[in-house]
Amino acid sequence: MEFKGAMGGIYRLTEWITRLAATNLLWVLCSSPFMFCLILKLLVMNQNLANESLQMNWAMAILAPLTLFPATSAMFTVVRKWVMGDTDTGVFRTFFKGYKENYKQSLIGGIFYTLLFVIMYVDYTVYMTQLSNLQIVGVIMLILIIILLVSMFNFFSMVAHYHMSIGQIMKNAVLLTLIRPFRVFSTMLGSAVVIFIGVKYPVLFLFFIGSVVAWFAFFNFYGTFLKMQDQMEKMKQKDEEQESVEDKKSDNLQK
Rank of each mutant, 00 (worst) to 15 (best):
L68G: 14
F225V: 07
D123Q: 02
G109W: 04
T187L: 09
L63H: 10
L178W: 15
I17G: 08
G5R: 04
T114A: 10
S250Q: 12
P181I: 04
F92M: 12
L20M: 04
V139T: 11
V213R: 10
F76G: 03
G190K: 03
N133M: 13
L54Q: 02
G190W: 01
T77D: 03
A6R: 14
T187Q: 05
M128L: 15
F196A: 07
R12I: 11
A214R: 13
S53C: 07
D251V: 05
Q105D: 08
G90L: 15
F218V: 08
A217F: 02
S106A: 13
M35F: 04
A21H: 00
L206G: 14
G90W: 13
S211V: 06
A173T: 00
P65R: 12
V203W: 01
M232T: 10
G210C: 08
F196D: 03
G5M: 08
T125Y: 15
I108W: 06
L26Q: 00
F117E: 11
Q242D: 14
V79A: 00
G110P: 08
Q242V: 15
S73D: 12
N46K: 05
V78A: 06
L54F: 02
N24C: 01
F69M: 04
G98I: 06
D247Q: 03
G138P: 10
G198C: 01
K227R: 01
V28W: 03
N220Q: 03
Q231D: 09
L142M: 04
I195G: 06
Q231T: 11
I136R: 02
L204Q: 06
G9M: 07
I140W: 14
F216D: 12
K238D: 08
V137T: 01
L134M: 14
S244N: 12
F185A: 10
R80P: 06
S106C: 12
M228D: 10
E240C: 13
D88I: 05
K81Y: 10
P202L: 00
I140V: 08
L148M: 15
A173E: 00
M170Y: 15
D230I: 06
V150Y: 12
V126Q: 01
F95I: 08
L149K: 11
A217Q: 11
H163Q: 11
L29W: 01
G198P: 01
Q168A: 15
A21G: 05
I147H: 10
Q130N: 12
G110S: 13
K100I: 12
I147Q: 06
V44T: 02
L142F: 04
L178T: 05
A6P: 13
N102G: 09
L204Y: 05
G9E: 10
A217S: 00
N57L: 02
L26M: 08
Y201L: 08
S106P: 05
A59E: 08
P202I: 04
M120S: 14
